[in-house]
Amino acid sequence: MTKINILTAVIIGMGTLHASEVDLVKSKCATCHMLEKPTPSMIPELKAPPMEAVMYHTKLVMDDKKTMKAFITDYVMNPAAEKSVCESNKVQQYGVMPSLKGSISDEELSKISDYLIEHYPSEEFVDMINEIQRNDKMNALQNSPFLINKEALPHMTKLLIKHWDKQALGLSDEQKKKLLVIRHHTIGEVQKTKRTIDTLEREMMEALFLDDASPKSLDHKIDEIAKLKAYVTKVHIQCISQTLEILDDEQIEYLLPFWEYK
């Protein structure tokens, strides 16, 4: 066989291997997981997380191929909520995937893992997620009732939602019970106060632009809004303080790896 024929055979073989991996992913994964890049509006309607999202979260917490392959193999064969790399509220939304034990071979799983690690997530999906996160941060700052709304001040209730059932965080039932009490009080006070703030701000803007009110006549509304924002900021800070008292040092480090807590 000439060198040209050998090279042709190798190229054809590589193409066949690639096609085989694609076929495996389609037959074993696409029944539940969307393989194309979803639009933001699609995500809430899907029966399982899109593969783009699964691999995006996988690569957020793992940085080498060997670890990722071991995780994928273990999770596909022995899935459990606490093993998931996705946020806990997403696991609650979609449920835990069924085990593929007995319906997929080790060789097939190895090929699928290689393909997913190499091709997912796409640059377009990562760009979309980054844009969503930027918009979320801007909306949070614009709509936040807190006087202190810098990113340096953690939103403990949202952090806990993301990691609630994660084995790595390791919340005990007793901790969860106490944290739910704090969350219920915090969210209740924030939502109630924010509704009042929204009403006062709307009334103030209507008076200023529609009724041509003088700035001085709006002083009482401004003072009341400031008072309410100060109150809800205190609720926020109290939530952080009470949460930190319940968590141990390792759990705090897990939730806030870049935050100096003494």
Rank of each mutant, 00 (worst) to 15 (best):
T199E: 15
K66F: 00
K166N: 05
F146T: 03
L141E: 11
T186F: 13
E123D: 13
Y254G: 05
E87A: 13
V22R: 09
Y115C: 03
L109S: 02
E174I: 13
M62T: 00
K176V: 01
D63W: 11
P98H: 02
Y75P: 00
P79E: 04
I148P: 02
E206K: 12
M77K: 12
A19N: 14
R134N: 12
H184I: 07
D165P: 06
T58H: 04
K176A: 03
S217G: 11
K178F: 00
E174N: 09
L208E: 13
L244K: 12
Y231T: 04
K83D: 06
A168L: 09
S214Y: 13
T67F: 12
S172T: 15
W259L: 15
F125L: 10
H33C: 06
T233L: 11
P40C: 07
D74V: 04
Q191N: 13
D212P: 07
M14V: 08
H119I: 06
K227P: 01
H220Q: 12
P49Y: 04
C86Q: 09
E87D: 10
A152Q: 14
V22S: 05
P50I: 04
L116F: 04
L141R: 14
D74E: 08
K216W: 02
L100W: 09
E82L: 03
H155T: 12
L7W: 03
V232P: 01
M14I: 12
E189A: 11
I222S: 14
L208Q: 11
N135I: 07
E52K: 07
T31C: 05
V61N: 12
E260W: 06
S103D: 10
T31M: 15
I161A: 07
I4E: 15
E253L: 10
E87T: 01
S214V: 06
H57E: 10
I237P: 01
Q93I: 07
E206Y: 08
V76E: 08
L180I: 05
T2W: 05
C239H: 13
D165E: 15
S144P: 08
H18I: 14
K227G: 03
H220R: 12
L218P: 11
V10K: 13
L244C: 02
Y75H: 07
Q93G: 03
R202S: 08
Q167G: 11
S113G: 10
R134P: 06
M128P: 02
T233W: 06
C32H: 02
N135M: 06
F146V: 02
E36G: 13
D64Y: 11
P154N: 00
K234N: 13
R195P: 01
M14R: 07
I6C: 03
I72S: 00
K162E: 09
E203M: 08
M62Q: 03
T2M: 06
C86I: 11
H163E: 03
I237Q: 10
L24C: 01
K59I: 00
S88W: 09
I187F: 09
K137V: 08
H33V: 04
D106G: 05
K65Y: 01
L109W: 04
I43A: 01
Y56W: 14
V190P: 02
R134S: 15
G15A: 10
V10G: 00
H119M: 11
L218W: 03
K150A: 14
F71Q: 06
K227I: 00
W164P: 05
S103W: 10
E82Q: 10
E131H: 15
L153C: 11
E52P: 05
V190A: 08
I246N: 01
A168Q: 14
K262W: 10
A207G: 05
K262Y: 14
R195T: 09
T31W: 09
